[in-house]
Design a protein around this nucleic acid. Structure first.
Length: 871
RNA sequence: GGGCGAUUAACUCAGCGGCUAGAGUACUACCUUCACACGGUAGGAGUCAGAGGUUCAAAUCCUCUAUCGCCCA
């Protein structure tokens, strides 16, 4: 084996071998308990970012352990067509590279271009995922816009239409003038904007010298005003209700009406009503049966029955014109700086325009109830649980979902309009003739479905619900959905609704929510901030194993992660440590080792490590079951480095002649590789191949479980004492500047005959680890030559002085420690003499306090005696 | 406006009622000893944001304040 671990070499071709061996492909007929996770499909908008690495590798860690535990595991990959995002990206490229718009190409040619892009992007993404080492079953790979998915989406659409859950209607929706499509409420991001509140005078028709003042942040919309509304309880305006005002610039007369929804404390207390361009005004207009005048078109330019000079102006240009014209007429009472929230397009950040139009909607109320109940009844559990509050909050206030988009890339809506009788025919395939009048001129709806519509069907459609396939029967409901919190509404909630409705069961049992990845300054990563990290770069430099381990150990459930390169570096070093520990073990194996350990013939150090391994295994399993993989990773890390390498491998150097110790070395290494495998699949596999058992791959071996044969509490305790005495001896050496390599005589004394006996048995370890020339265990240190002292519980250590200076230095140090202990003892005695503490604290706490106090007192006494001795 | 989270060593974070508060990185001293200098041994480093409270006991629970971040309306 090489002296330094080379992650590039190790990580280069294991994946191909795993995949080729069919390890990742489950058999529906297998006997194991089914366990399934569907990969959250990455968007085919380009390549993966580091956030994906987290969301994808956490479930992989779970999946690999489950496989090793004998579950029949399906981990199914796929990618998402990501309608609006992908289309925009391709449009942008087309503009940049060929200076063409999608309209220049036409629908068919443009879509062909998007498909090409999709293939490229998918290829990149799949390569990235494989680099990460995910144990995905590629034979079942899915795409949200494949022919099969298109069929099933149409099937569901038609079903929901027939049930009356999908309907077409004319409502106020959000429109992005840049993306040229409507958006759902979720795709609108509200951001605080510094704007201006303009107070405008609307003259009364009866008496133009008097007026009512309305305030607005959007003066251009006044051209579409149909009324002025006041609160009927507002004494200032009560008597004006019923009168009319003359709408400035437009010159129309509009009524003043009373409506309870008007907040009389806001601005002037009177509001202009523009039903076609404001959601609240729309509501008030519906109530009062007011006309809706559209004055802003789909591209956010002025339109409709307005003075010609404004026609065709962009909404913001028009605003400037209107303000200038009002000012000229002295109709502006005042203007105020005003901070308010404005909706922006999630994709392009353009200010969205509320707009009335005819769209397709999904009625959500009936779907939401069972979805809420499923979580209430714990058929679905959120991890961490706090996210269910977020879920409930949204679901209880859910609005109907606008599902049509004016895009080309996506699932085309299966609705056909008869050109003869205007009938709307909704069908899975083009019916050819109008079902009402028999006319042959049918034109399909131009729009496509919101990307999230197909995503909502993902868990059951990927498993073949539409064909009642064996996969569906075996693996649905899936076990876990792992995702980031930012798509709980977009995706998780909708999957639950559609899963219950269509597939008649919840889509998954547990929702594992992970945080976002931030940079080491806590900033959200983004391309615009230029702090985004490419996972491939990290993998190249530090290894997929190091990246996976870093993500795992930092991923406390639901918490954001600040990704620090330093940490990744640290775990790359860890891989090297593992490599070298293995190198040591493998170099010393002689081929006669037996993994069935004969516990009667192994050394105490062997027993000690087996007991510790056992305890670690037990805890790791508990932590995994609680989804605390980050703690499991931490535990494994410290077991390997601080116990196995620092102590056990050193102990073993004295026992290499024993085949039993060599067997334990081999077994413990094997177990370590198994524990590590879910986190670090590559290095663990590479080393496993060198100590291979009857299984070809580590993933086929059984994940470690508690072993009742490896329980040796007394031996364990004795070795722990030995470690402490060694540590104290080393400390005494270093503090007193005794050369690390120099072998010196060491004297030990101990109050406990039992411990003394144990240590005598372990003297070969002690001599080796403490670099002792000759160790003597005596009854009374005071009869020996003067020396440096160390104290560890029942033990005293003496390292003879080389000079009188040594003596004085030692005296000074001891005095300091004596004082420190005195303070600590006083503190603890105070607690123990407090009757309330003694009365109320649990017995074992008091017991351990007393025990510690006793130790401190004894230690102090010993130091005191030594001080007298040396003085 | 409603809600959620964070604030612990120089940096990035764990710990979430109980022994002298931990990790990785960085730092200091010494050491190329035959697994590993991507190493070893030892060390320094924190009034756990602030103020009150509950408790025998608080970084941990409660209240308030401050700062930062996020979500919903």
């Amino acid at each position: 084996m090489e002296k330094a671990y080379d992650h590039l070499r190790t990580e280069s071709d294991w994946y191909r071998k795993w995949e080729a061996s069919g390890l990742f492909t489950p058999d529906v007929k297998a006997t194991g308990v089914p366990f399934s996770i569907i990969l959250p499909p990455p968007n085919v908008t380009g390549s993966l970012h580091i956030g994906h690495a987290l969301t994808l590798s956490l479930p992989d860690i779970i999946v690999r352990r489950k496989k090793m535990q004998g579950f029949n595991v399906l981990w199914l990959p796929g990618v998402d067509h990501a309608g609006i995002a992908t289309q925009m990206m391709v449009e942008k490229n087309l503009k940049k590279e060929r200076n063409l718009s999608k309209e220049d190409l036409g629908r068919e040619k443009f879509l062909q271009l998007v498909w090409e892009w999709k293939d490229l992007s998918e290829k990149k993404i799949v390569a990235q995922i494989k680099k990460l080492g995910l144990a995905l079953d590629w034979s079942r790979m899915k795409f949200t816009l494949s022919d099969e998915m298109q069929r099933v989406v149409r099937k569901v659409f038609v079903q929901l239409y027939r049930e009356g859950k999908i309907y077409q209607g004319t409502y106020m929706v959000n429109r992005c003038p840049n993306c040229k499509t409507v958006l759902s409420d979720l795709e609108v991001e509200h951001k605080e904007v510094h704007g201006r509140l303009t107070y405008i005078r609307y003259p009364l028709k009866k008496d133009p010298r008097r007026w009512i003042v309305v305030a607005t942040t959007r003066p251009e919309t006044m051209l579409g005003d149909v009324a002025v509304a006041v609160n009927p309880k507002d004494s200032r305006y009560k008597k004006l209700i019923g009168q009319e005002v003359l709408l400035p610039l437009a010159g129309r007369a509009i009524p003043i009406l009373g409506d309870d929804d008007v907040d009389k404390h806001f601005a002037s207390g009177a509001v202009k009503i523009t039903p076609a361009h404001d959601p609240l005004d729309f509501k008030i207009a519906q109530k009062n049966k007011l006309e809706k005048i559209v004055v802003i078109d789909e591209l956010a330019c002025m339109t409709g029955p307005i003075p010609g000079k404004y026609l065709g102006l962009d909404r913001f240009a028009c605003r400037r014109e209107i303000l200038a014209d009002l000012r000229a007429l002295d109709l502006i009472e005042k203007e105020e700086e005003y901070v308010h929230n404005i909706g922006h397009c999630q994709r392009c950040e353009t200010v969205v325009e509320p707009n009335i139009s005819r769209q397709w909607f999904l009625k959500t109320a009936d779907l939401a109830h069972p979805a809420i109940r499923a979580v209430l009844e714990k058929q679905i559990v959120f991890i961490p649980e706090k996210w269910k509050k977020v879920y409930f909050n949204w679901m209880e206030n859910i609005q109907d979902w606008c599902i049509s988009r004016q895009l080309w890339w996506g699932h085309r809506i299966p609705a056909y309009y008869c050109q003869e009788c205007q009938e709307v025919v909704v069908a899975e395939e083009n019916p050819g003739r109008c079902t009402k009048c028999g006319g042959a001129r049918l034109v399909q709806d131009e729009d496509v479905l919101d990307t999230w519509f197909s995503s909502a069907l993902w868990p059951f459609t990927t498993l073949g619900w539409q064909n009642d396939s064996p996969d569906f029967k075996t693996f649905y409901p899936t076990s876990i959905m792992a995702t980031a919190f930012d798509i709980i509404f977009f995706w998780v909630a909708r999957m639950i609704m559609m899963g219950i409705h269509c597939a008649e069961a919840v889509p998954f049992r547990e929702v594992l929510i992970n945080g976002l990845i931030r940079d080491d300054k806590g900033q959200k990563m983004s391309k615009t901030k230029n702090n985004a990290v490419d996972p491939l770069e990290i993998i190249r430099e530090y290894g997929a194993d190091a990246l996976r381990f870093t993500l795992a150990i930092q991923a406390a459930p639901g918490m954001d992660i600040s990704l620090s390169i330093n940490r990744i570096k640290g775990y790359k070093t860890f891989a090297n440590k593992i490599w070298n520990a293995s190198r040591y073990v493998i170099m010393n194996l002689r081929g006669d080792e037996d993994l069935r350990i004969d516990v009667r013939r192994i050394s105490d150090a062997d027993k000690w490590i087996l007991q510790l391994l056992n305890a670690t295994v037990e805890k790791v399993n508990v932590l995994f079951d609680e989804y605390h993989m980050y703690e499991a990773a931490d535990l494994i890390y410290h077991f390997i480095w601080d116990e196995y390498c620092d102590w056990y491998l050193e102990f073993s150097k004295n026992d290499l002649e024993s085949p039993h110790t060599r067997s334990v070395l081999k077994l413990t290494l094997f177990r370590i590789l198994q524990l590590l495998h879910p986190f670090m699949p590559y290095i663990s596999e590479e080393i496993y191949q060198k100590i291979k058992t009857d299984k070809d791959f580590l993933l086929q071996t059984e994940f470690p479980a508690f072993n009742k044969d490896f329980v040796f509490p007394e031996t364990f305790a004795a070795v722990e004492v030995l470690k402490k005495v060694v540590a104290e001896t080393r400390k005494t050496r270093t503090e007193n500047r005794i050369e690390p390599n120099k072998k010196i005589p060491i004297y030990l004394a101990c109050d406990s005959p039992a411990e003394k006996e144990q240590l005598l048995k372990h003297l070969r370890y002690f001599d080796f680890l403490a670099r002792s020339l000759k160790t003597e265990i005596v009854d009374d240190l005071s009869v020996l030559p003067k020396g440096f002292r160390g104290v560890s519980q029942n033990w005293e250590i003496l390292l003879p002085f080389a000079s009188d200076e040594d003596r004085l230095r030692e005296l000074q140090r001891l005095t300091g420690e004596h004082d420190k202990l005195g303070k600590l003892i006083a503190q603890m005695e105070g607690k123990l003499s407090n009757s309330e503490f003694v009365g109320k604290a649990p017995a074992e706490i008091i017991q351990s306090f007393k025990k510690n106090l006793q130790e401190y007192i004894e230690k102090k006494a010993k130091i005191g005696k030594t001080i007298d001795d040396l003085s």
